[in-house]
Write a protein that binds this DNA or RNA. Sequence first.
DNA 1: AGTGGTCGCTAAACTGATTTAGCAGAGCAT
DNA 2: ATGCTCTGCTAAATCAGTTTAGCGACCACT
Lengths: 341, 341
Amino acid sequence: MGRNRATLADVARRAGLSKTAASMVLNGREGTRLSAEAHQRVFAAAEELGYRPNLAARSLRTRKTATIAFVSDIVATTRFAGGLIRGALDAARERDHVLLITETQGDATFEQYAIEAMLDRQVDGVIYAAMATRRLTVPPAILGGPVVLLNATSSDTLPCVLPDDERAGRSVATALLEHGHRDAIALIGRNRLKEGDPEVSLAARARLRGIHQALGDAGVTLLAECFCTDWLPEHGYAAMRGLLNRQQRPSAVICMNDRLAFGAYQALGEAGLTVPDDISVISFDDDPIAAWLRPSLATTALPHEQMGRRAVELLLDGGAAEPTLVGMPLRRRKSLAPPAG
Amino acid sequence: MGRNRATLADVARRAGLSKTAASMVLNGREGTRLSAEAHQRVFAAAEELGYRPNLAARSLRTRKTATIAFVSDIVATTRFAGGLIRGALDAARERDHVLLITETQGDATFEQYAIEAMLDRQVDGVIYAAMATRRLTVPPAILGGPVVLLNATSSDTLPCVLPDDERAGRSVATALLEHGHRDAIALIGRNRLKEGDPEVSLAARARLRGIHQALGDAGVTLLAECFCTDWLPEHGYAAMRGLLNRQQRPSAVICMNDRLAFGAYQALGEAGLTVPDDISVISFDDDPIAAWLRPSLATTALPHEQMGRRAVELLLDGGAAEPTLVGMPLRRRKSLAPPAG
DNA sequence: AGTGGTCGCTAAACTGATTTAGCAGAGCAT
DNA sequence: ATGCTCTGCTAAATCAGTTTAGCGACCACT
């Protein structure tokens, strides 16, 4: 790779100047007293030789690599990761930086290894990302340099970027209230583990808080809350079947994520009920399936791209010590309607 | 990042030896005549100081960075990318390498920029990946070093890794034949663009070839072939509705991918038909939704992880100049049954 | 005694950039 | 003539490793 690339010495020689001169001109150093003509000659030589600096050599001296480590538990390989990485890549590119990506797979040995591999390469900073919004323990090794937590917090006061799940909870509940739903709203996806352990999830609690807040403000209480052992379609399916077996059928259902909603749709379809005429459904995440469902599913979008972008901005441009909350926009789609008759 | 790390000079000093000696010991050089005691002292010193070599410095001399560029058109941010990257990460880690990931977003300027950024960092090789299996033109800049194409081919004879779509086509058709379907098999997802332009897709043609081959061998012809402008759920939905309006209803449907199948399921549900009792469905990709559908969807899995892994192996370990085809395993699920009546 | 070989180790060059310190010459004032 | 400043530029050190060439001590052999 990159054999016979021109070096700074080549450029200097061709320009008839010293390496020092060439270096200063190419770096646009102020306060140097090199003549306009010298500038011209260096630029011309660099152009002609197609000169590109060797960043390994440069960083040896400057201790900057223009490289950011993106370390995640498992995020890089899931559908949720895409946006985070894309946002980070975009922001990094705008700042002439590049991303070194690794995954720990939640394994301490891998994590240790990954972090050492990054530090050995003298990265300028680390973005430590989690798949599920949660609290985590930051490995001490990376605390020697700039760190930003992405989709996570920690007990150390590190800058971090989180989705605003609480506000999303309020938007979701408010959207239902606006459609006239009041006393027959059910919730699918209560989960003791996710709500109780911040190391598992921060989202569950926050969403719940937002929902209860908005409903409370309107003097409304939930008709039913279904517990689910996980947030997968099968659990949403079972929960919805349970709801349909009760004496009062809900007019609207809030699902804690889109996969639950997907399962709920399946149960509704089997029961011969129609969304949104019989039941409205609203949810969280804006998974791609939300738009594919028939009717399309109203939901609040996890702003992955924005979050990835903010993480890089915080890391390189510096900023807020307090958590950065990124808004989760409400996607109004066809699964919402006023309650039937 | 990594301030006050111990250097090789520190280790040498502590061991009471020269940098040369320390370097040789730590690199396990054969044929050096350093005493066992010298070895001990160096290892001890390195251990005590927590010495880790500065890879920027090392690669300046050795022209190896133990870093691979993973350049993709857009793959890094889609659900399809996950597996590719994970496989590549795993294989890279096993070989003590690390991945520098960028995305070109199909934009020539970005691509140019991304490739220069990688080459400036002296990567040891480039994996050039595409989201859709297709033929592409490799930017000449990266031809100076090792390159492997992932999920793509080119006119240059570069090593490449592709899914075996043709064989997948055969498996899919064979699975239906095995269940006893013969003269009422329909196909959803013909597409002139994907079939005609290798720069758009290689998969469409190959899958089709496999399907026709297996059916032809059994003396079976398709009942119907539906054209779709794209392979999204809405197109599958429309195509299935079209099929249901014909006089002979198919006993089985092959969808060119899982999203089409998802749409087909929706149309079947609305028409009050049951999978697989009324109609069997089988498909390609093994998108996560395939397992989430009710009943779960039989499909052939894109072996993303395997492919990512193979790409790294080819790049670092060398190997086959001819295309590496990775098998697409058939996932037998509940959407298959013998034809009704 | 001189020569040659092996052993155990090191000095110094080298990689390709940045950066510090400073030199030569011109112009000007004293 | 001397000293001073300013201009325009360069030599050399530096970053942290790897690698080449070779040095001194010791032993064996003729």
